[in-house]
Design a protein around this nucleic acid. Structure first.
Length: 642
RNA sequence: GCCAGUUUAGCUCAGUGGUAGAGCAACGGUUUUGUAAACCGUGGGUCGGGGGUUCGAAUCCCUCAACUGGCUCCA
């Protein structure tokens, strides 16, 4: 993993694998900003960076032994890293720090820039015991000037820029305390990081805080519990292993229905594979030994001759002198699909061969990385592998792309970026498989497809997978969280590892290319995203409870039951509620449960064969003939409209 | 895995060393109901698990776990 860059995945030279890693949070980069970047800093970033100085100054006043590292602006505010062995920050310290910050703001110091020689700066920080600053000083390229900023008694090694005076830092708030490894490397010591945010004025700060509150309301973990979609039962099931409740299972099955329909239309063949496989599978794929740590530990069958049955023990294990047989829970489906491809002789007439499966994978994510449904240890992937010839590739890739766009339209996803990761020619044969021509051609094809479909994409050099370029789809949930929700990868290398081949027209064996694709990602992350995207107000086709019929009095129960029967006969998820509550109470509960459509039937409706339609969140839509209302519901479900 | 915080009834939360509480939900009954909460009653908790201090622990201490916020990681 040493060659892996800061933020990508599948980029290490040791990784010849598919990798549907769905996580890719945006992280504040700990890399140095160039001088040009600094000039581009927005006013808000200047303000926040200045606020970081004010906070650091306050901390040093309160804890004079604190040593400073760095304090940049981030997307939501700023942080500053401290080394302070004799005190651990807790949120209880915030009022004192904020009070001291206010004092510094009132003192209204100028941010005074001073350009210094290296030796002067070194001496200055050595005198203050600021060892991190001296190390950071050594990072600054020879050509760049060294500058410090002073506000009051506080001096920091800093290239700026800042606001004019501490008095300009008007509205700020400390947010949280966290640990952070020095230089972002877990081999280094941990520093204490204080996060805060700052805005030009109090009103904007408060608006932002309010937005954060709103975000919490649509958090998928909260809504998932409220709507009984899933639970985590760590004590019995295990951390990161969700149990899908009936309502959540509806979402899964509707998504699978969508996927199966689109994949059927697009000529995919469905396959099914077990949740585990022998060690040899992952040794051949290359996952072992590099990634064993990210997989659940193997199940070891001590008596191999007995365990192995007809096949005998794993020869590789025997060769190593181990008379045992190991099975691993699968962390990805591709090796299994490769073996399916290899199961029978293949002809060019079979190509392209598109093997699809909602495969369940298990990844032993570190405990601290688990995050609701977004980062779990068991996941069901909208997986498929397309085996094709290089000639067939553009068309296949284009079709995959079209499927992505189809899905985005269905879900009303307007804000997304495709992140196109390409190779670096200078690293062919090391980080990237040594196929210069294939790289060039494939990347050009991919680029052209992206451009022609008018998709918004960014190209990221040097972040491709070992075996080919890839596209990650990044989306934002309605609350502004960014996720990699889907991925589409080109693979020229792994089919060869498995010895995959097809007989071509010229009667020679050729190795196929492979496209790994998962436009709906995993159920877990995709549904987590959808919950936030819709704030739990699912469109009719997805809504766990689509229709609830509410008779006004017991006299209409029979009529209501008739309507429910009619709907259920058409596979509409409809129910009836008649309880001791008055109508407004039952409406309230249906609204709270986010039931998509309520059909209210009283004496008036019954006598005229009507229903009064009420849409969740939209109030009373008025009475309509029952047949018309039912037909409209069926149409909307069929068209996957809201 | 690391740092910090949190963990009390199904849910939201109150309870700072002296008999575990409220609202909602659940259940039972009354009410026959017209577009976001009718009324009355009942049951429900080993206060995350374990250990310790104390006459006495939800409350103080230790430890383990899960979750949350970050960091690292992310095949």
């Amino acid at each position: 993993m040493a060659t892996a860059g800061k933020r990508g995945h599948c980029q290490s030279a040791g990784d010849p694998l598919d990798c549907f890693d769905m996580a890719d949070p945006v992280q504040a980069s700990s890399e140095r900003k160039s001088l040009e970047d600094r000039e581009k800093m927005t006013d808000l970033e200047r303000l926040r960076h200045s606020a970081a100085h004010v906070m650091a100054a306050a901390v040093v006043r309160l804890w004079p032994t604190a040593r400073l590292d760095i304090g940049p602006a981030t997307e939501e505010g700023f942080y500053y890293d401290f080394d302070l062995p004799d005190h651990r920050f807790t949120p209880e310290d915030f009022p004192a720090i904020e009070a001291e910050m206010k004092k510094i703001v009132r003192e209204n110091h100028r941010f005074e820039k001073a350009v210094r020689t290296r030796d002067e700066a070194r001496e200055l920080f050595a005198g203050r015991g600021e060892t991190f600053k001296i190390e950071r000083l050594n990072d600054i390229p020879e050509a760049e000037p060294i500058s410090t900023y002073q506000s009051g008694e506080f001096v920091d090694l800093c290239a700026g820029p800042h606001v004019m005076r501490t008095g300009n830092v008007k509205a700020f708030k400390l947010l949280r305390v966290a640990a952070a490894y020095y230089r972002g490397d877990e081999k280094n010591q941990q520093l204490q990081r204080l996060y805060g945010t700052a805005f030009p004025n109090q009103a904007e700060l408060e608006a932002w805080l309010k937005m954060q509150e709103e975000a919490k309301r649509r958090d998928h973990r909260k809504l998932g519990a409220e709507m009984s979609l899933f639970v985590f039962d760590a004590e019995y099931t295990g951390p990161g292993l969700p149990l899908w409740l009936p309502a959540g299972t509806v979402l899964i099955e509707e998504l699978e229905k969508l996927a199966k329909e689109s994949e059927f239309e697009a000529g995919y063949l469905r396959v099914r594979t077990p949740h585990l496989a022998r060690e040899k599978m992952y040794r051949t794929s290359g996952h072992l030994p590099y990634y064993a740590e990210s997989m659940y530990p193997p199940m070891e069958l001590a008596d191999a001759s007995q365990a192995a049955g007809g096949g005998g023990p794993d020869p590789a294990a025997q060769a190593g002198g181990i008379a045992s047989d190991r099975y691993y829970l699968k962390a990805m489906n591709c090796p299994h699909h490769h073996r399916i491809f290899a199961a029978e002789p293949r002809s060019y007439r079979d190509m392209p061969m598109r093997l699809a499966e909602y495969g369940t994978c298990y990844r032993f994510e570190q405990s601290g990385e688990l995050f609701g449904l977004m980062r779990v240890r068991s996941m069901q992937m909208n997986d498929a592998h397309i085996y094709c010839s290089p000639e067939q590739f553009p068309q296949e890739f284009d079709a995959v792309n079209a499927m992505y766009l189809k899905y985005f339209k269905i879900f009303g996803l307007e804000k997304y970026v495709m992140r196109f990761s390409t190779h670096d020619p200078s690293r062919l044969g090391q980080k990237f498989v040594d196929e210069a021509e294939l790289w060039k051609r494939t990347e050009e094809m991919v680029r052209r497809v992206l451009q022609e479909s008018g998709i918004h994409y960014v190209e990221v050099p040097n972040e491709a997978a070992f075996y080919g370029p890839k596209i990650d789809v990044q989306v934002w949930s309605a609350i502004g969280r960014e996720f990699t929700i889907a991925t589409n990868q080109v693979d020229f290398a792994v089919p060869a590892r498995f010895g995959l081949a097809y007989r071509d027209r010229d009667n020679t064996d050729k190795t196929p290319m492979c496209i790994h694709r998962a436009p709906l990602g995993t159920h877990e992350r995709f549904i987590g995203f959808l919950i936030e995207h819709y704030a739990g107000n699912f469109p009719l086709w997805l809504a766990p409870e689509q229709v609830r019929v509410l008779p006004v009095t017991s006299d209409q129960v029979g009529y209501a039951e008739e309507i429910v029967r009619e709907l259920r006969a058409q596979f509409v998820r409809a129910g009836l509620e008649f309880s001791h509550d008055k109508l407004p109470g039952r409406i309230q509960r249906a609204e709270e449960a986010k039931v998509h459509t309520m059909l209210i039937v009283g004496a008036r409706e019954q006598s005229e064969g009507m229903v009064a339609v009420r849409r969740h969140g939209q109030g009373n839509q008025g009475a309509r003939p029952r047949t018309e209302a039912v037909a409209e519901i069926l149409r909307a479900i069929r068209d996957r409209r809201d």
